[in-house]
């Protein structure tokens, strides 16, 4: 394979993987933006979304799109429930307590998942033709196109929601200043709930797409992608929505290039190394602004 084909091939692989990371990273960044919490359970919410998608397509024999929508809806409700039950009572306490709660919620979803569906890996049915396309030496699956298209559509909708709808404006206001928003008559609690709902449904979409792409799912599948998506969010500048998209795509590309060069066992290490370099050089991320502490 020539270097141009190699580059193009890694670009396709990286875009697919990166789209998934970006969808998860969006939820991380939105939640962080609004309540400054690293929601470590977010990757596991993605796992729940993947299982709902699996259930819809195998047991209920649904097609991809209805399965995706059902999964996103149920997971959105789950996200709101998690926020109300576990995070809301901690909004006034230390951030560390909230972080520990998020870790607890993550364990709860992972091992609760094992209790409910068993620890074994399950195969996702072929919802799409497994045809391989070959254009000028670059191969890609039908799934690649579906992933990239779905991501583009979801991100466009998200941008629209945040820029033009009432709830989107409320979200931006609350993430800017919670108290002032409350004074302006914005229902802060509902806005935070909505943020969790939107973030969780995007994670669910990522979960279903992951199932489609890798064909296998299991209850612990959310741990690593969740962590990498968080890195992606930090990379782009945490709390910044376009940053999460950019960071996700960047992570996907880096990973597939490292794997493509034959260093797949070092793939995760490279991701972390890049994260650390970014943090040291520009801790606010690629798109972030520096904030100074007032003395």
């Amino acid at each position: 394979m020539g270097s141009v084909e190699f580059a193009a091939q890694q670009l396709i692989n990286g875009l697919s993987l990166g789209s998934i990371y970006a969808l998860i990273a969006l939820g991380y960044t939105m939640v962080y933006g609004i309540i400054q919490l690293i929601n470590f359970a977010h990757g596991d919410i993605m796992m729940v979304g993947a299982f709902i998608g699996w259930f819809c397509t195998t047991v209920l024999k649904m097609a991809f799109l209805p399965a995706l929508i059902i999964s996103m809806t149920i997971t959105a409700i789950l996200g709101m429930l998690i926020e109300r039950i576990a995070y809301k009572p901690l909004r006034k306490s230390t951030r560390l307590a909230a972080l520990i709660t998020a870790i607890g919620m993550s364990f709860f979803l992972e091992y609760g998942g094992i209790l409910v569906v068993g620890p074994q890996t399950r195969t996702f049915p072929d919802v799409f033709p497994q045809t391989l396309y070959n254009v000028g030496g670059v191969t890609f699956k039908y799934g690649d196109i579906v992933i990239i298209l779905t991501t583009v559509v979801l991100m466009t909708i998200l941008q629209f929601v945040i820029k033009y709808t009432r709830i989107g404006k409320a979200m931006r206001a609350v993430s800017f200043d919670k108290d002032a928003s409350a004074l302006m008559g914005i229902n802060v609690d509902n806005t935070i709930s909505a943020t969790f709902a939107i973030g969780s449904s995007l994670a669910a979409a990522a979960g279903v797409l992951m199932g489609v792409y890798f064909n296998t799912i299991n209850p612990l599948m959310g741990i690593m992608p969740g962590l990498k998506a968080f890195i992606a969010a930090v990379l782009g500048g945490i709390g910044i929505i376009p940053g999460a998209m950019l960071g996700g795509i960047a992570m996907g590309l880096i990973e597939s290039i490292v794997s493509g060069l034959g260093f797949s066992t070092w793939r995760d290490a490279v991701a972390f190394l890049i994260l650390i370099i970014v943090l040291i050089v520009k801790p606010t991320g690629l798109l972030g602004k520096n904030i100074r502490e007032k003395v």
Binding site: Y32, Q36, I38, R95, L99, L227, F230, I231, V234, I238, T265, W266, D268, A269, F272, L273, L275, I276, L279, I280, P283
Partner: peptide, 28 residues
């Protein structure tokens, strides 16, 4: 020395990453 300049969550995620790098080094 390089990471302790970072604050709060940034330090958390940087050290988490470094811990994972250590693990991956032993893995390889």
């Amino acid at each position: 020395i390089p990471t302790l300049r970072l604050r709060g969550d940034y330090l958390a995620i940087a050290t988490l990453g470094l811990g994972e790098i250590v693990r991956i080094i032993f893995l390889n």
